[in-house]
Design a protein around this nucleic acid. Structure first.
Lengths: 210, 210
DNA sequence: CAAATTTACTTAACAATGTAAATAATCCTA
DNA sequence: TAGGATTATTTACATTGTTAAGTAAATTTG
């Protein structure tokens, strides 16, 4: 049916309009400044129209959350070129930190805010994006173990640890908890990268004897 | 003057009443369920009375935030007994994780939520509690370096790294991001402790040759 | 001790928020 | 073109933080 098909398309277009407006507010003014009324203003519809396309506000945020994972994935395209798994792990960490520091609002939604996870549980859906990212991390860590860069052991446990480390850095940084450690803002990213260096060097066993 | 003195005391008592009520709501129902009106209900005053004792809602949260650091500090009393600095570092991590997992709302306020930090900047005050905690961490790390447990280097950078690691674990856990890694809730704390073990073992150079 | 003033508190109100129900406009089909 | 379905808007409500104005009691002052 050509007509219902076109309708579907229109519906999707307005959905996209809403998401775009939300994202604009979201990235420019931050999480808590995204209101239904502001979104409605931007797309030039009445506030309640938004509810014809999304169940509620959290539903919108959940979609942005997904979009964030897509963005992050795109930024990781350069990883495939790196043969050495430890170097790749290092680069993954760098990319992760870089993404978090340049897209703090997205990072917030993806890894800090509670709302999207509630939606995820409520929708009981798959969340393939996140799981895929985890999968890539675990695979790289496993490869590091096989090739003698990391102590052999539970690759999932080590992956969790690596993730925790970089997440700790980023989330402390964007929530302004590192001011005592790093008073100058422009030093933040360099210091974080140094910290990552230290971490990778410490877990790397490839240069050790006995 | 006995009268103004008594008045001061009363004023402080009501402040405490407000803080206690806030804390009750806060720990029992969580951050976003603390409203001025609910606080007022609990202490049986009108909502606006709260504003006679605190500048605004964030001011209340800031005071709870401080209280959290005090609590955490009290829970660290057992650290002084530990002579071995690496063991002490390990125990610090364990305590940190334990505190976060048993007082998620406090942890949220102390290390995740943005509001208290805004207040801190606005009040431009000292935040001795937090700084003292950092100081203890750095001192322990430095001692680990001196005694040959950790690679010699920038103790502050390593401290930042250690903190980031445990903060990453706790904040991912309490924001429900570890469900893919650790599906069973009761396994969460054990796995986190395992992760900490792995971390400490990896940074410990005391057993290595060359 | 009476008048004036300060203090402690409440009532009323405002503006912003998410969201639901009722209503209107538009569109498609018979 | 009439009528039902879809899409949008208007109204409305409850909740939020917060301010301004009002009031009664306590305290100070003459």
């Amino acid at each position: 049916m050509g007509i219902t098909e076109r309708k579907e398309k229109q519906k999707l277009e307005i959905r996209k309009l809403i998401l775009d407006a939300s994202m604009k507010l979201f990235t420019e003014e931050g999480f808590e400044h995204v209101t239904i009324r502001k979104i409605a203003d931007l797309i030039e519809y009445s506030p309640t129209t938004v509810y014809l396309y999304f169940k509620d506000k959290d539903d919108i945020f959940f979609n942005l959350h997904e979009l964030g994972f897509q963005r992050m994935h795109e930024l990781n395209a350069d990883l495939d070129d790196i043969q050495n798994p430890l170097l790749r792990l290092h680069k993954m960490g760098e990319n992760y930190i870089h993404f978090g520091m340049t897209h703090p609002e997205f990072y917030n939604l993806m890894f800090i805010q509670e709302e999207p996870m509630k939606k995820l549980a409520e929708l009981d859906c798959e969340w393939d994006k996140g799981e895929a990212a985890i999968g890539r991390l675990v695979a790289t860590v496993a490869e590091c173990m096989e090739r003698g860069y990391l102590d052999k052991g539970d690759a999932r446990l080590v992956s969790l640890s690596v993730w925790s480390f970089v997440h700790g850095l980023v989330s402390l940084a964007i929530r302004e908890r590192l001011e005592k450690f790093v008073p100058e803002k422009e030093m933040l990213l360099p210091v974080m990268m140094q910290s990552l260096n230290w971490f990778i060097n410490n877990i790397d066993i490839s240069g050790r004897k006995s």
